[in-house]
């Protein structure tokens, strides 16, 4: 379990992280999302004790990282953005070193073998790290974080440099680990966060811009009063008739998608379901409806909306205050 309260980091005059608070429960996978320089890595570095916070506390499994760093660090497996690999060593020698460094008590041979199997690096364990491909290096980095079976895993962009099938494997692995570990995962790949994480925190300019499940986030931002309809018929006639409907906020014609078929983006007043009305109007005028869909926002859209400064207020959960 990780409890973060009002964590702040100043670099000189610049405030990189401005009072971040959140909690990650056991067996939960939390996704960290944010543009470059938002403070994701800084936050992770503070959680792992690489740098200290200017103010605020980070408690890992009941141990404050600043009060008893050695005990707190023993609970954390950390994969930094750039895996801390000694490239002159073989994979086996390196993992043995980490095993000793972390003062691991588990049976050495079995534990190292099981970690290698989990990360699928058993077949390269006698090779020198600098000769490995980026994907393998990344997996050795992940293996390093798993040694000693720490209850908390902090992974900074764990799938960078992997090919799609490896990415899938690692994601499955992280999901599996998430059942028995507390995991924080940062990523630039939004679909990855959506797939793997139970909860998402969006960090922007050093503050938590959103904290919710991926599904809830899209629901909150989703605009079911916004429709995209593809209609066959005279463009001007359709525009005028649609605009005259009750509850319509705006109608815009998009590109001509097929010959004589335009796509219209229709925005309704809130809580108005226009689908039946549009269907009726189309029938009356003999327009064929070739497509009708509500525009559901992907995490990508939400991310862009939030970080571009749109609707941050809307997105912060109303019960946010009660969390601290």
């Amino acid at each position: 379990m990780i409890e973060v309260k009002e964590l702040t980091k100043n670099y000189g005059d610049k405030q990189a992280v401005k009072g971040i608070s959140f909690t990650v429960n056991d067996g939960e996978i939390l996704g960290f999302l944010g543009p470059n320089g938002a403070g994701k890595s800084t936050t992770m570095n503070m959680l792992t004790g690489y740098i200290s916070s200017t103010s605020g506390t980070a408690v890992i499994n009941g141990v404050d990282i600043l009060e008893d760093p050695i005990k707190a660090k023993a609970n954390i497996g950390y994969l930094p953005e750039i895996p801390p690999l000694y490239v002159d060593m073989t994979v086996k020698a390196y993992l043995n070193f980490i095993y000793d460094l972390r003062k691991c008590k588990l049976p050495r041979k079995d534990h190292l073998l099981s970690v290698c199997n989990l990360c699928k690096i058993t077949d390269v364990k006698d090779r020198i790290i600098k000769h490995l491909s980026k994907g393998y290096k990344q997996r050795v980095g992940l293996a390093q974080a798993l040694i000693g079976n720490p209850p908390v895993l902090i992974l900074d962009e764990p799938t960078v440099g992997l090919d799609p099938s490896q990415m899938k494997e690692i994601r499955t692995l992280i999901k599996k680990l998430g059942k028995s570990h507390t995991v924080i995962l940062s990523s630039h790949i939004l679909s990855e966060i959506q797939q793997v994480c139970d909860r998402v925190i969006i960090i922007d300019k050093g503050v938590v811009a959103a904290d919710d499940t991926a599904d809830n986030l899209s629901k909150k931002m989703s605009t079911d009063h916004r429709l995209i309809v593809r209609l066959e018929g005279d463009k001007d006639e359709i525009l005028t008739k649609l605009k005259s409907l009750d509850g319509i906020k705006s109608v815009t014609a998009d590109l001509e998608k097929e010959n004589g078929v335009f796509e219209y983006e229709i925005e309704a007043m809130e809580n108005v379901d226009l689908r039946r009305k549009i269907s009726d109007v189309a029938q009356e005028n003999g327009w064929a409806i070739l497509l009708m869909k509500t525009t559901e926002l992907t995490l990508e859209d939400i991310f862009l909306k939030i970080t571009m400064g749109e609707g941050i207020e809307n997105i912060i959960p109303d019960d946010k205050g009660g969390e601290n």
Binding site: T48, G49, Y50, I70, K71, K73, A74, I76, Y78, P80, I82, P84, L85, Y86, V87, I98, L101, R102, K103, Q144
Partner: peptide, 14 residues
Amino acid sequence: KQKTDQGLLTAPIS
């Protein structure tokens, strides 16, 4: 330079 210090400084040692 190789950023391996991050591994040492986040390991449970003084």
